[in-house]
């Protein structure tokens, strides 16, 4: 890899382009970094400069439980998305011409409908006398209507539906770049299909897997509408409790502390995963 990089003449930024850099940096500094910093500062400075907000979040109340549940469901949703998206992406990546356009079109089109509307649609489908229950009864899989709404199952299905494109797109992009001659070479050298997949295709697709996993997991952590519509008493996610503290009780310091912990957890998990993934990629390419 390093050898290839050295061989190609690197593209450099001209001075003119460098002058444009302060614009986006300034924009991000004012509208992203500064507000974020305010949130972090508020969590330790208000109402008094100490860690009382953090003590409360990590104490006996419901907050730590909710944060843990948020991570659990985000991991579950990410895993399901990966399992569902991987074969679909592998097939799509092999398509050419019209079929590929139709497939990508379908995936992108699902992004045009808002998560609110799609969650409402699931609300209707999952009802006691809704389509899903009718189908379950007609197929003999259930004797009476099953309670689907208000459960983690309903929340997970709704979230997977919304987030699947974010797993599919990076996977397809990476898989399309996999050189088919490598697979042919492996086959000629006598590798069985399973071995071919595990030793050649899977390692080469890992950058796409990592991008998809990061995108879906981090987006999952901030979900609000889907869990509040499809979930019940036990399915409170972090964003819901942050909204409640911020907009029902106007306790911005506490809301800031929960948000800061969620952010810190996200960064830690992301870095840990990144390190793990890098080790995995280099090992399998060796």
């Amino acid at each position: 890899m390093a050898g290839i990089g050295r061989a190609a003449k690197p593209w450099t930024l001209g001075r003119g382009y460098l002058l444009l850099l302060p614009l986006p940096c300034g924009f991000l500094a004012v509208f992203f970094v500064w507000p974020l910093l305010r949130v972090v500062l508020r969590s330790v400075l208000d109402p008094r400069p100490n860690f009382s907000n953090y003590a409360k979040v990590l104490g006996a109340g419901p907050y730590a439980h909710i944060l843990l549940y948020t991570i659990e469901i985000a991991a579950l949703v990410t895993a399901i998305c990966l399992l569902l998206a991987y074969p679909v992406a592998a097939l799509t990546a092999r398509m050419r011409g019209g079929a590929l356009q139709v497939m990508t079109g379908l995936i992108v089109a699902s992004l045009w409908t808002s998560a609110v509307i799609r969650s409402y649609a699931w609300l209707i489908l999952f009802q006691r006398y809704g389509v899903v229950n009718q189908a379950l009864i007609a197929l003999g899989l259930a004797g009476a209507p099953v309670r689907i709404l208000q459960t983690t199952t309903a929340v997970a299905i709704g979230m997977v539906h919304v987030l699947l494109p974010f797993m599919l797109l990076p996977l397809i992009a990476t898989m399309r770049r996999i050189d088919p001659t490598l697979l042919r070479a492996g086959r000629i050298l006598g590798a069985a299909p399973v071995r071919l997949f595990l030793r050649v295709y899977l390692p080469l697709s890992l950058p796409g897997v990592n991008a998809g996993v990061a995108l879906v997991f981090i987006t999952s952590l901030g979900f609000f509408i889907t869990p509040s519509l499809l979930g019940g008493g036990r399915t409170t996610m972090a964003a819901m409790i942050i909204e409640e503290e911020a907009d029902t009780y106007l306790d911005w310091p506490l809301a800031s502390a929960i948000a800061t912990i969620l952010l810190a957890l996200t960064v830690v998990i992301y870095l840990a995963y990144g390190r793990l993934a890098r080790v995995e990629v280099t090992r399998s390419l060796r």
């Binding site: 419901p62 439980h65 306790d251």
Partner: peptide, 14 residues
């Protein structure tokens, strides 16, 4: 009493 009651309510619900 809203906030502390809400906290207790949320804990109970979980």
């Amino acid at each position: 009493n809203g906030q502390k009651t809400g906290e207790r309510f949320n804990s109970w619900m979980l």
